[in-house]
């Protein structure tokens, strides 16, 4: 049988992302105290896949496991709960929000971030554990995720750099204003949750503005809001709350600065892309 030679191209960046998240989760389960639990992770991932399958069926789009896997793994890494059903609820809310909360054929909120914020504000049984990463794991993760970013440069994930840079700049400015040593902002940057947030949530191409200018504006706005929530209101989940509260802004930015819509697939003719 004759096959046409195809030019070599990199696989979908989400494969790298899934590999990175799965590695982080394995490290988390194996060596981090008070970290992720296997049963909870399994439930989160399974519920995410199941919800995606049901959602695809109902909306008539082909099923793709990559996106719900990323959401399930992110939730496993970031969210802690005192009951297993809350992990299922988190995955259900996350993936459900993708199918239900949509404007102009584009979902409004990053799924995992949305579920975390909803559960933190509506139930008493969940918390986040942002301090549980050592410096070594942090640097290794930063390197790995940055590599993925470079590999998938075509995929509009410049927002990760915009956000990380503006967040770091704000921390450095605050330290300069307070007269604090540089060790303090550097230590504040060494948060595992910050990396997951930067590389998987705010940079989720499906919920970021379509134009480059829009993404830059959005990243800076989220960084400023998170800074206010964290340091003035002393809110621990400041990053997630800032992102979710400001997500509707992406649609305003898309209207103001229109650009081509992102899709994970090279061409999705119509219907709901996931």
């Amino acid at each position: 049988m004759l096959t046409w030679p195809r030019p070599w191209r990199l696989p979908d960046a989400r494969y790298f992302q899934i590999a990175a998240l799965a590695t982080l989760l394995a490290v988390n389960v194996a060596i981090i105290d008070f970290g992720a639990r296997p049963a909870a992770s399994l439930i989160a991932v399974a519920t995410a896949l199941l919800t995606q399958a049901v959602g695809c069926r109902l909306s008539g789009v082909p099923f793709d496991a990559k996106s719900p896997l990323i959401t399930g793994l992110s939730l496993s890494l970031l969210l802690r709960a005192d009951a297993l059903w809350l992990h299922a609820a988190a995955a259900l809310i996350a993936i459900g929000s993708k199918f239900v909360l949509r404007v102009d054929g584009k979902h409004v909120f990053n799924p995992a971030g949305f579920a975390i914020v909803v559960l933190l504000f509506t139930t008493r049984g969940v918390w986040i554990s942002p301090g549980q990463w050592g410096a070594e794991i942090w640097f290794a993760t930063l390197a790995g995720l940055f590599a993925i970013l470079v590999l998938s440069a075509s995929h509009r994930v410049d927002i990760a750099i915009y956000f990380f840079a503006s967040h770091a700049a704000l921390l450095l400015l605050r330290a300069a204003w307070l007269g604090d040593p540089i060790a303090i902002p550097l230590h504040q940057l060494q948060s595992g949750s910050l990396l997951i947030f930067t590389f998987f949530m705010i940079s989720d191409p499906r919920t970021t503005p379509d134009s480059r200018v829009g993404r830059l504006l959005f990243a800076v706005t989220v960084a400023v809001a998170a800074h206010y929530l964290a340091f003035v209101l002393q809110m621990r989940p400041a990053l997630y709350v800032a992102l979710i509260a400001l997500s509707p802004l992406t649609h305003v930015l898309d209207r103001l600065v229109p650009a081509a819509r992102f899709s994970w697939r090279p061409s999705v003719p119509k219907g709901v892309s996931t």
Partner: peptide, 9 residues
């Protein structure tokens, strides 16, 4: 637990 340092058993 500490929010900005590791908490270890």
């Amino acid at each position: 637990e500490a929010a900005n340092y590791r908490t270890v058993k």
